[in-house]
Amino acid sequence: MRTCGATPGGPDLAGVDLANQAVIQGVVLRGGVSDGVPNGAPVDNAYVRLLDLNGEFTAEVPTNLEGQFRFFAAPGSWTVVVLAHGAREEVKVQAQTGIPVDLVIQI
């Protein structure tokens, strides 16, 4: 996991009201050497689910053409679940207002 930096995994944050939003975002990449796909290729047909502290479903988005996704959450503990053809990954994160969580998730 990376925090806010010059090269975040998720979409460009320009125009996002970070002062008032607890953003969780990132990019999904297809890794591995035996799946026939180059390492680091963005996965543009994954589904990313956001579960709350109790594991309850809160939201789901498809990845964009660059394999990216974004949620506007509330501060606290969340789980990000990535579903794609033949893959499922879970990442636990802490969201806070003002500092976006930016993930790079390899599947």
Binding site: L50, D52, N54, E56, F57, T58, A59, E60, V61, R70, F71, F72, A73, A74
Partner: peptide, 15 residues
Amino acid sequence: SPAEFAGELAAPAHL
């Protein structure tokens, strides 16, 4: 979602 019901969020978390 429970967070919207409780009044913690105003919209789904992807919006």
